[in-house]
Nucleic acid binder design. Sequence first.
RNA 1: GCUCGGGUGGUGGAAUUGGUAGACACGUUGGACUUAAAAUCCAAUGAACAUUAGUUCGUACGGGUUCAAGUCCCGUCCCGAGUACCA
Length: 1007
Amino acid sequence: MSYNFKQIEAKWQKYWAENQTFKASNKSDKEKFYVLDMFPYPSGAGLHVGHPLGYIASDIVARYKRHQGFNVLHPQGYDSFGLPAEQYAIQTGQHPAITTKTNIKRYREQLDKIGFSFDWSREVRTSDPNYYKWTQWIFIQLFESWYDAAEGKAKPIADLVELFNSEGNSQVKAACDEDVTEFSAEDWKAFSEKEQQEILLKYRLTYLAETEVNWCPQLGTVLANDEIVNGVSERGGYPVVRKKMKQWSMRISAYAERLLQGLNDIDWTESLKESQRNWIGKSVGASVTFKVNDHQDTIEVFTTRPDTIFGVTFMTLAPEHELVSKITTPEQKEAVEAYIEATAKRSERERMADVKTISGVFTGAYAEHPFTKEPVPIWIGDYVLASYGTGAVMAVPCGDQRDYDFAKHFNIPIKNIFKDVDISEEAYSEKDDTKLTNSDFLNDLPYKKALKRAIFELEKIGQGKGKTNYRLRDAVFSRQRYWGEPFPVYYVNGMPKMIDEKYLPLQLPEVEKYLPTEEGEPPLGRADVWAWDSEKNEVVSNNLIDDKTVFPLELNTMPGWAGSSWYFFRYMEDEKRDEVFASVEAMKYWENVDLYLGGSEHATGHLLYARFWTKFLKDRGLVPVEEPFKKLINQGMILGESAFVYRIDFQFESKNNIPKEDILNIEKTENFIFRELNDPNLFLSKTFKEEFEKSGLATIDAINNFLDNKIDFIKNELAKNSIKIDLNIHSNLTPIHAAVSLVNTSNELDTDGFKNWRPEFKDAKFITNEDDKYIVGREVEKMSKSKFNVVNPDDICNEYGADTLRMYEMFLGPLEQAKPWNTAGITGVYNFLKKLWKLYHNGEEFSVSEEAASKDSLKTLHKTIKKVTEDIEEFSFNTSVSTFMICVNELAAQKCNSREILESLAVLISPYAPHIAEELWSKLGHSESIATADFPKFEEKHLVESTKTYPISFNGKMRFTLDLSLDLSKDEIEKIVMEDERTQKQLNGREPKKVIIVPGKIVNIVG
RNA sequence: GCUCGGGUGGUGGAAUUGGUAGACACGUUGGACUUAAAAUCCAAUGAACAUUAGUUCGUACGGGUUCAAGUCCCGUCCCGAGUACCA
């Protein structure tokens, strides 16, 4: 009986589903293990072979842990709110819920084919009202909380109200908006209800505020900082502009320090922690207040180098700084306004691309140095960013290169405050023991002491204090989209009110179109039934808003990361209870995720927000853990190998001064360029491409002919008008993607297939190689539909089976490394599984022997147990696959078919290739699934050796090997080695200077 | 620029504390079986010279430490990822 993977895989997939083999129990005496994948967004394109990589790795761990006797929670679900379904809805009118459902069905089919051991009974979908009910509920908890900075935790807002009632806000240390003013208990009580609510909003952990947001006009929505890459939107790559809008925000900045410190307690890769540390961007220094001469105003700056305060020779404000217009003198007004206008015009992108150019304008105003009282000119410059710190810097040109460059450029004096340091060429920014000079009370102090002293003196005169600054900004939480969680919020007199949690979920309303309204309101503005009756506690028609009890509902929806910030807690709940987001017992049992797998692209988005929400929920006593993910691994991306054909485009250029109308396709009147662009008739193959690029046109006859013809043609056309012409030729290769399915493993293109596939090229001429083959160009790119390089896991499953797919994906290389998909090597793994199958069969018959295994076979087995166990613990899955291959090769050579060995081997391999393992297990006579069979125990005794094959080296170079007993002493070894004739031959009569012997390792003879 | 990874055959990749570089596979070549092909099996496969033993060179490059370096140290170059006028 041969290895029929199709039948085997279908059989066991059905068995697992029917027997709920992988359903996790919340009541178990076993130790728990929670292994989780980042849940996918179910896109319309379906899964490609890159998606399952992480799922396969986590599935191996999950299955391995079950064999080890753990109670394993290994769930899966869908992050099913999001843009693509909405874009599709805009184009086609199909409700995103339908698109999403269809896509999920397809995902599930694809996932099921790969044989994952997911507990599907716990599936979540973020777009399911029963799920987003709790997303809304958590939002309400955030709204009803404030952050007590003194205690470092979130508390109910009612506690804050109590504090305000008894003592006002002057003693309250809280994370809040910067513009809160002080008030006493009496003031508080005198405020109107609305005034009180406005103040409380500045303290809530989610708040509504007029903030500068990233607006993406093409997407019609705001974006969070982590949704912008290189100044353009992550999705679509559209430009983003800064805009002031009233939006919901999350006060994540309150948690900056805890998010930073928490990194020390979790087992994540250093690079990932580093990304989060950068994103949080803690810097310790001081805030310093400068008085503005002839004004009441002060300028606050943040600096990490208060010790260099005596080196300040000017200040720079961001062009957007609010004081600029106030303090600019009439003489400078024109120049300043022109500069502001010029910088505003430049996009983020341009500003980022152009770091070198130094620009700025003097405002005409001066500030007063806090100690010397000397006037300090105030400039504006775009190297100071409005969004970081206070948007203003004290410039110390001798100690900061940017200040230095700015000062040089505008001839501002540079004062040297570093003793015996030459600053004629560049600033001195080292933080070392260099002593200060020209610095009054800081003279002769090194960096560390000067830092402390400077802060002390600033505090004494009330013009500064030690301060820690974070780059992490509060996260904008509103999106002007349809397909997201509705906010459980309605507005009374413009003030937000929460819907009572009893009436959740607040379900998405129906709209007739998924676009913003004509007035520019979000899509929910189109809903007719989208008002809240605060008496009946239900959604009612907008027409009733004139009623006293009916109010408008929030029109924004929540961002994609809302639902993904807590889903790992929902999986813990086995009964999907309606009255809790997850039960206390369930959360106490499962605690947090032991192993989390996903892409590194979530380093500063999802992973930061999920940690933030978890910490908040912990503060409010709603979850028992401080960190959601104990260990995290990023699987590398599997890239596609795109195939390219190269279209040749030519430009013919003439130096003659010929009237335009005489020539075809003329683009310029001075030097004429004839364009023969987009000629669909000529493609250059890859083998020619390299030559072509190297030596130009002349080397290839085919191209020469082509060119000659073209030139003749043009000359003839012109000759008709009696014009003579000199032609120059420019050529250009345009790469065009070819579908990878049209290319074989030798990179040969099916040219007829290509012509059928892209009818616009149906007349294409291919310049082929000597064998009349067209060789495509290859390039490694991200897998995507638009690049025609997607490889579908279903196809691999059909051709080779899921077990082969699983093992091959692991075999490709280290999990965390990015690697291109190349189907070429898959036969190696497929052959391996066939060999494995053969071990258990004699011809067509299943056949194992009941006799005791040979010593060699036991050694092979236990070697394998040891290595595979270590590999799984270290997530080194690729080397495990090699180990299995070696094992099977050895057992086959030994002609081993002993039950004792083959039973253990089936269990060993079952995490990797579960279908074949189950089949062999049942053939071995077991009626239960292999899933919880005990993992074989490694026994050292089988590996104990009496001899060692010693490498005998001369001057470090191995020349031959020698089998020697391990019992021998150093002297005995030396004697045997020196007597060996090969040693004598190597020495060629010389006396060895030294003989190094490391028993059990090596012999090295130094001659 | 900064931070973190990385650089090993034709290819993907192995190599515990420094101790036989290239495991395992793919590919290639030759052979067996076959009318033939596919499948399967066997052998060879880092490079060069010699092809009988063998010799020399080889882990980006240049130095160093060591009996011994892919591995440790110093310097240089290149590639990838993240981040960026962060005061």
